[in-house]
Design a protein around this nucleic acid. Structure first.
Lengths: 112, 112
DNA sequence: TTAATATGTGCACATATTTTGATTTTGTCG
DNA sequence: CGACAAAATCAAAATATGTGCACATATTAA
């Protein structure tokens, strides 16, 4: 195995110890991946204003219904949104307001 | 153009108004994309503990040097890390501690 | 200048993602 | 039931991403 060039072994061990393991890094990465697409970010923004049905989301975002539906499935699968069916129409909403904290941290970082 | 089925026009206008535009959504998405890969997250974590040279980062993460270098270029290009050269070796560090806030918002969301 | 070492780049490959049109499922209401 | 409407799924194209090999570049030391 490769050896560090500048870190002493003790410091390396320490860093390795504090480093998130691959499983946890992957979970975090999967979460951030949901925020790493402009369509999904706009869906999240829209839903943070008001719950909405698929068709209205497609209207507001001016995008294909299928695209919206697909992205909503992704957001569902990661628990970011939930939904309720009322007859033919399905209403989506953010599952918790904590999602906005993540968005905001990005907005603040960029200084908007 | 598609019409909303359930929102009245006024509400639609309002939502459209508050929705981040595509340019800003893309910028945010690009930022989050940097956090959407486990290798980059681990690099960021390592650098939040201590600045380090490329080789040591490769050691600590137990990954190919070229892979690390590629990912560091990405992190550089988005301003998340900066570097200084000292002779042959290049030291990388987080450009601001604000980056940790973004990471933390994700960690908190997941409840770790 | 040459050798040795640290880092960056170009390319190729595999894999994943985003989007759309066509189709299907689910539900409503005559 | 049949006609319609909303949303989901399928299939496929276009695009993007992560990784590592081979090589290029930069810096130091001899």
């Amino acid at each position: 195995m490769m050896q560090p060039k500048l870190l002493d072994k003790r410091t390396q061990k320490e860093i390795t110890y504090y480093l998130p393991d691959k499983v946890m890094s992957q979970k975090l990465a999967d979460l951030f991946a949901m925020f790493a697409d402009k369509t999904r970010l706009r869906l999240i923004s829209a839903l943070s204003i008001s719950e909405m049905c698929v068709n209205d989301l497609a209207c507001v975002l001016e995008m294909n219904q299928t695209t919206i539906s697909h992205q909503l499935q992704l957001l569902r699968s990661t628990g970011i949104v939930t939904f309720t069916r009322q007859g033919k129409t399905v209403f989506y909403r953010l599952s918790t307001s904590k999602i906005n904290q993540v968005m905001l941290s990005g907005v603040e970082y960029l200084g908007f």
